[in-house]
Write a protein that binds this DNA or RNA. Structure first.
Lengths: 202, 202
DNA sequence: GTTACCATACCTAGAAATAGGTATTTTTTA
DNA sequence: TAAAAAATACCTATTTCTAGGTATGGTAAC
């Protein structure tokens, strides 16, 4: 019988820690050996407790998740999984550079969380295929022309101005606009912008 | 004749360093003794070179500007000036807490940059009057009710929904909406959101 | 070589936002 | 307490966005 996997969780929001704990508590081969809402405490705990895996929030008071990973680069066997609200490309790339093993959104389901933990525990990194593919799919999800129109919407242009700038008819711009709304599942520009920022589309 | 002021510049974007260097290079009483695009290098350089003033980007790979200041709190005589793209209240307050001397937007003009440097070099802090006044004016610029409406617009609600949530008539919401646009100097929601983010209103 | 996707363009209709007013009441401030 | 600012509400008109269609030519994938 294998030893259980020791996990440390650090997140700004207690609710996230509680949620993750709940998802993990019935696994008899996973043990949560500590938690923290603060980056500096997390850093010290990880040094002291040497967990197999640390789930780290990207943004925490005191010390950010990426900071901790970088500080401990080469000095620990703990494998890091980054948690974040948003799927921002920049952060995924940063996490990869700093030798994190995976990157999860906070609304992750139990199955995906467990899969990720087991794979990471066995030494597998989950960036290349799963996540970067997701990133690409997110982007490819919008066609190039839709991206053009989206960019100009975010620049504050109205449809007529976009049509002029992209040498399209107003009808075409409105079609792209309509399709963007549909794909984003929103129904006005404000929500569209929120969606773009959350998904890290641009 | 006074000794020249030794300055260190750290910023993610080389273009900003180049721009600042350009603005400062003809001052014979100012010397740029080092630059960096990386937070960790900046930290080490500042410890080693002990500049009189360090201009630090808030967001840098490796170590953020505020992190550096916090780490060196009480351990150095270097005076820190924070650079940032946006005038976000949160960051200004953080910078104050960590004993930074001033806070500049990256599109600062030469005169303001030089004034700030000279004042900081002489030990003056430029938060209370200049910047916080600006901040307060920015916020007071919008009335409380306008802030309410603005928040809901950013949440993606349409005017009718805002009216319901705030117990106002649609007419009133539209009045606030109109006044927001006028104060921001914009003419659609996308531009309004950009303005809010740039000014750090929320 | 058929299917799927993309880019383009058009039509219609209704909802919502934008922009210009005016005006009354309440609250704040000088 | 008088003046100024804020919040409220209404009116009208125009513009813009949103949402549902349809349709065609091109390109890519399978």
């Amino acid at each position: 019988m294998k030893e259980s996997i020791n996990i440390y969780i650090a997140d700004d929001h207690q609710i996230v820690i509680d949620g993750l704990s709940l998802l993990l508590k019935n696994q008899n081969n996973i043990a949560i050996i500590g938690t923290s809402n603060d980056g500096v405490k997390a850093y010290n705990d990880i040094v002291a407790l040497k967990p197999d895996i640390a789930l780290l929030d990207l943004r925490m008071p005191g010390k950010e998740g990426l900071e901790i990973i970088k500080s401990l680069l080469g000095k620990t066997n703990t494998k890091f999984i980054i948690l974040s609200m948003h799927q921002e490309k920049r952060y995924v790339l940063d996490a990869m550079n700093y030798n994190a093993y995976a990157y999860l959104l906070k609304n992750v389901g139990q199955q995906e969380l467990l899969n990720t933990i087991y794979k990471v525990a066995s030494g597998e990194k989950l960036f290349n295929q799963d996540l970067l593919n997701n990133q690409k799919e997110e982007k490819a999800f919008l066609s190039p022309r839709e991206m053009d129109v989206l960019r100009e919407i975010m620049n504050g242009l109205k449809s007529a101005e976009i049509a002029e700038r992209l040498n399209l008819s107003l009808f075409t711009v409105n079609t792209h606009r309509k399709n963007l709304m549909k794909k984003a599942g929103v129904n006005n520009v404000s929500q569209l912008i929120t969606w773009v920022n959350e998904k890290g589309i641009m």
